[in-house]
Nucleic acid binder design. Structure first.
Lengths: 100, 100
DNA sequence: CGGCCATGCTTGCAAAATGCAAGTAGCCCG
DNA sequence: CGGGCTACTTGCATTTTGCAAGCATGGCCG
């Protein structure tokens, strides 16, 4: 299995990179992630569990029934890849011209 | 929609980045991609169609009933992001220790 | 010129992932 | 003790993915 395939095994699932991207701005709470990203709540819960298990992020307990999700060093190391992908997406991606 | 989301809309689907990665080594034929990546043939056909429509790659007719798939400039521009993700995946990704 | 093979797909259907909506659980505040 | 806030879980429909088998086209070999 290539390194790329190994990476995609962890952060290749839908929403995973978007969640990490959001956390690059600092720890966020569940509801914030949900509202900012528009991700379905069950998917968010599943991804957070997977990313925590993969050592990408950790849960920080806050007051009573709230907690924050924060990137680990390994999660922060994704910044370079996320920035590169974001820059790529910034350029208009258009289909070829329709001329004959 | 963020730039990252736009990028993932194009290359976020399963196998897409692996296909592009393989094509970074130069144009490849359908059967080569299929055997090298182990991707199901219907998925490969679907992804190649999508990536062609997105302007990431083009079809080059070869002898009789064979053709090659080659990256466009836009496809080649993914190299940086793919390398970054690959480097990230290279480091052992382990779950947290089981100690209490 | 006719059968046969290689190559590049398409198709039918099962399994898994994703999404929507509603419900559950713990805690604090009044 | 009731209501609201937060973080989820659950049930089920929809979409995506995967497997296996089949189809199409062009060249080659007899």
């Amino acid at each position: 299995m290539s390194d790329l395939a190994a990476a995609l095994d962890i952060v290749g699932a839908r929403w995973a990179l978007l969640i990490v991207d959001r956390l690059l701005d600092g720890p966020q709470r569940y509801g914030d992630l949900q509202r900012d990203l528009g991700v379905p709540t069950n998917m968010l819960a599943t991804r957070l569990r997977e990313l925590e298990a993969a050592g990408v992020l950790v849960r920080l307990p806050l007051r009573h029934n709230t907690r924050a999700y924060a990137l680990t060093d390994r999660g922060l190391a994704l910044r370079e890849a996320i920035v590169a992908l974001g820059n790529w997406g910034k350029n208009d991606a258009q289909e070829p011209s329709l001329e004959s």
